[in-house]
Simulated assay, not measured.
Amino acid sequence: MTPEREGTREGSRERAPAGATAAPRSRPRLDQPRPPRRRVLPEWDPDAFGRFSERIARFLGTGRFLVWMTFVIIAWVVWNVSAPRDLRFDQYPFIFLTLMLSLQASYAAPLILLAQNRQDDRDRVNLEQDRKQNERSIADTEYLTREIAALRIGLGEVATRDWIRSELQDIVKELEERVDGRGRDGHRVFPAEPSGARDVDDR
Rank of each mutant, 00 (worst) to 15 (best):
T2M: 05
G7A: 10
T8V: 15
E10V: 13
E10W: 10
G11T: 13
S12G: 14
S12D: 14
R13T: 01
R13N: 00
A20W: 01
R25G: 12
P28D: 00
P36Y: 02
R37K: 11
R38D: 00
R39S: 04
E43F: 08
W44N: 09
D47L: 15
G50E: 07
R51K: 11
E54K: 08
E54Q: 15
E54C: 08
R64H: 10
F65Q: 04
V67K: 05
V72K: 13
I73S: 03
I74T: 13
I74Q: 10
V78R: 04
W79N: 13
W79V: 10
N80I: 01
S82H: 07
P84I: 02
L87A: 10
D90Q: 03
Q91G: 11
F94S: 02
L99A: 04
L99T: 03
L99K: 01
M100I: 08
S102E: 07
S102A: 06
A105C: 02
Y107N: 04
P110C: 00
L111N: 04
L114A: 10
N117L: 15
N117H: 12
R118L: 12
D120K: 14
D121R: 15
R122S: 09
R122H: 08
N126V: 15
R131A: 14
N134K: 13
S137F: 00
I138H: 14
A139N: 11
A139H: 03
A139F: 04
E142N: 09
Y143N: 08
R146M: 10
E147W: 07
E147R: 07
E147N: 05
I148F: 11
A150Q: 10
G154P: 09
L155G: 09
A159Q: 14
D162H: 06
S166I: 08
E167Q: 08
D170A: 10
V172Q: 06
V172S: 10
K173P: 01
K173D: 09
E174N: 07
E176A: 12
V179W: 05
D185K: 03
G186P: 02
H187D: 07
P191S: 00
P194K: 05
G196V: 09
D199F: 12
V200C: 04
D201L: 14
D202I: 08
